[in-house]
Amino acid sequence: MSTAYLERLDPVQEAVDWAEYLVDIPAAYRLWVAEEAGTVVGFCRTGPADGDPDLGDSAGEVYGLYIEPARIGTGLGRGLFGHAVADLKGRGFGQLCVYAYVPNTDAIRFYERAGFTRDGIERLDDEDGIGVAEARLVCRDSPAM
């Protein structure tokens, strides 16, 4: 995401939005949080792949994996992602997908190392004016976590 976009975010409103989301989160959705010394250092959201009917009714999605930049490369992301994927599989989801911003080649490589592959599907994330293309990666077999 661009620096300009991130600078436009209002931390107070973001906190309110997250609090509302957590109160009303549907049962099929999960939010996994990693913390150190009481501070959130990463999170991962998962649930049904509702926006991808071509993957079938039993498809699951990792909606996002976010790690504090200073913690990237420590194994935290791999552990959090592995936990989220194992939960999706354990709850009976078949194919799994994740979208990554196309310019974020590090994230794409991370998902590829975990057993996900780009399938040629892209979409534009234009929510709140982000305006960045996302590539879909899918895993049809057991991920390599």
Rank of each mutant, 00 (worst) to 15 (best):
D17M: 12
P53C: 02
E68H: 14
T46C: 06
G82F: 05
N104L: 05
R140A: 15
V33Y: 00
S2R: 10
R140F: 03
D125S: 10
V12A: 15
R113V: 03
G120L: 05
V98P: 04
D24Q: 15
G42Y: 00
G92L: 03
R78P: 01
A107T: 00
G38I: 10
L76M: 09
Y29C: 11
G131K: 06
L124Y: 11
E122T: 15
A135K: 07
L76H: 03
E14S: 13
I67G: 02
R45P: 03
E68C: 03
A28M: 05
A135C: 13
G47L: 02
G64D: 09
R45G: 14
E20Q: 13
F116K: 07
A34Y: 03
E112Y: 08
G90F: 02
L6F: 06
T3P: 03
A19G: 13
G47H: 06
G60A: 10
V98C: 07
L96I: 05
S2H: 11
D119R: 02
A59R: 06
P11F: 06
V85F: 03
I121F: 15
R109W: 04
S142F: 07
F81N: 04
E68N: 09
F43K: 13
D57H: 01
A100W: 01
A107D: 06
G79D: 06
S142V: 12
I72H: 05
R136Q: 11
